[in-house]
Amino acid sequence: MALADAVMAHNYHPLPVVIAEAKDVWVTDVEGRRLLDCLAGYSALNFGHGHPALLAAAHEQLDRATLTSRAFHNDRLAPFCEALARLVGKDQVLPMNTGAEAVETAIKVARKWAYDVKGVPAGRAKIIVAAENFHGRTTTIVSFSTDPVARDGFGPYTPGFETVPYGDLAALEAAVDDDTAAVLIEPIQGEAGVIIPPEGYLPGVRELCTRRRVLFVADEIQSGLGRTGETFACAHEGVVPDMYILGKALGGGIVPVSAVVADRDVLGVIQPGNHGSTFGGNPLAAAVGHAVVRLLETGEYQQRATQLGSRLRERLDQLVGHGVVAVRSRGLWAGVDIDPELMSGREASEQLLDRGVLVKDTHGSTIRIAPPLSIEAEQVDWLVDQLADVLEAAGATRTQ
């Protein structure tokens, strides 16, 4: 850790642990401690560390071809895109690498669609976003962030975005005008603390976008691919957006893979030369991504997230009033608000680390719990037991 502090820029404030090995839901640090991973790479490790099918796909492809660039076809890309499009229920896939790259891609597609199809005058296309959003770290994306830590000091900012409160349909409708190209939202706000919108909000967004001829763009980078108990979080309310933005778990925890998925009347506005990526759609990424789609096609992981998510929520609810102020969850994804008079989210995370559990704090007093979907019921119970012990010990100390 001392070496890392000396030679690495401090763009993160990691917990004091150095991981050396990982398998399924467990990681081992350089001191030999075995730790239960309840962050799962912010959902990049939905299938656990080193899933055999994903490793096999990667190993096989490493011996064949890893990178060709999009100057040529490769034999892995079209099958991957066909399978992903079928899983999503859309016509076309635009493959990229990172989540932020996919968000930037969706922004470009939405603007070009607005000019070429909707007829918005040049230079006037507007995209509406939600407050407390997290879509990435590029200069364009932080331009519409409301988090001062992520945004301040990186101007001048990219214009063309309008921010409204998350979950507020009236504010969203008031913001939509003839120049609006898209509404870009997370169906569940992860970085904000696993914030679930009010019932009816997502269907309301869908209806408004359809009525006003605006694209509904759903950032499912963290919430998608089984995490919430459905393949996509939008499905909990029967909503189908015009564009899905996917990432994290699409790479199986092995390589960065992201994609924008939409129908041909939307993605068809992109023509050769409009957009590209040297590594986007490379053979290794396509092979791993295709293996991820195969895992999701079985429905096993969605079912596990539903069943074990119910168990996690039931156990966490028992802590409300005993050091926990509130719990928000969907599937195997929970935001737990710790009583700030007891400890901060960072302190809770550090104390859980001492007890063999890895979680991460956000927004002061909140911790996020998002284990791999391969976690077992007894492991769910054990992680909640550790949190209960941390809270009980802190409460006893405070009353002394």
Score class of each variant (00 low, 15 high):
Ile254Glu: 01
Ile128Tyr: 12
Thr278Lys: 12
Arg315Thr: 00
Pro148Ile: 15
Val324Phe: 07
Ser349Asp: 11
Pro16Trp: 14
Thr105Arg: 07
Val88Leu: 02
Gly50His: 04
Pro283Gln: 09
Asp177Glu: 13
Leu202His: 05
Pro272Ala: 10
Leu391Phe: 07
Val88Trp: 03
Val27Thr: 11
Leu387Phe: 06
Phe154Ala: 13
Pro256Trp: 07
His290Ser: 13
Glu173Val: 02
Glu392Arg: 15
Leu342His: 10
Leu342Gln: 08
Lys108Ala: 13
Asp385Ala: 05
Asp263Asn: 11
Ala175Val: 04
Ala377Gln: 14
Ala83Cys: 03
Pro95His: 06
His49Ala: 08
Tyr157Thr: 11
Ile185Leu: 15
Pro197Leu: 00
Gly89Leu: 07
Arg76His: 07
Ala249Tyr: 01
Asp339Phe: 09
Val390Gln: 02
Arg315Leu: 12
His13Ala: 14
Ile245His: 11
Thr362Glu: 05
Glu173Ile: 05
Pro148Arg: 14
Val357Met: 10
Glu132Phe: 12
Thr146Val: 06
Arg212Ala: 04
Asn11Leu: 14
Val88Ser: 04
Pro148Gln: 10
Ala106Asn: 02
Val292Ile: 09
Glu132Ala: 07
Leu352Thr: 02
Val18Tyr: 05
Ile245Trp: 14
Lys118Trp: 03
Thr139Asp: 08
Asp354Val: 05
Ala170Met: 12
Glu341His: 05
Met1Glu: 15
Glu31Ala: 12
Glu297Arg: 04
Leu295Lys: 00
Gly281Glu: 11
Gly280Glu: 02
Asp63Gly: 12
Ala130Asp: 13
Ala131Val: 01
Ala53Cys: 08
Phe144Val: 03
Leu35Phe: 10
His275Lys: 05
His13Cys: 11
Asn133Gly: 12
Phe279Leu: 15
Arg64Gly: 01
Glu300Asp: 11
Pro371His: 07
Gly252Thr: 01
Ala377Leu: 06
Gln189Ile: 01
Thr278Met: 10
Asp177Asn: 14
Leu54Gln: 10
His73Gln: 14
Ala348Leu: 06
Asp63Val: 14
Glu341Val: 02
Gly281Ala: 05
Gly153Arg: 06
Ala20Ile: 00
Ser69Arg: 14
Thr231Tyr: 12
Leu250Gln: 10
Asp147Arg: 02
Ala182Thr: 06
Val384Met: 03
Tyr201Glu: 00
Ala305His: 01
Arg227Asp: 08
Arg315Trp: 01
Thr298Ala: 04
Glu82Leu: 01
Pro148Lys: 07
Val25Ala: 04
Ala100Ser: 14
Ser277Asn: 08
Pro159Phe: 12
Ser69Gln: 11
Val17Pro: 09
Ser277Thr: 02
Arg346Glu: 15
Cys81Met: 08
Ala130Lys: 09
Asp168Met: 08
Leu45Trp: 09
Ile185Arg: 03
Ala65Trp: 04
Val194Arg: 12
Ala110Cys: 13
Gln307Trp: 03
Glu132Leu: 04
Leu172Thr: 05
Ala348Pro: 02
Ala181Thr: 01
Ile188Gln: 04
Ala175Pro: 02
Pro203Thr: 09
His59Pro: 00
Val257Phe: 15
His10Ser: 06
Gln61Met: 10
Val120His: 00
Leu373His: 00
Ser258Gln: 03
Tyr201Thr: 00
Thr278Leu: 13
Asn74His: 14
Glu60Met: 10
Ala181Lys: 02
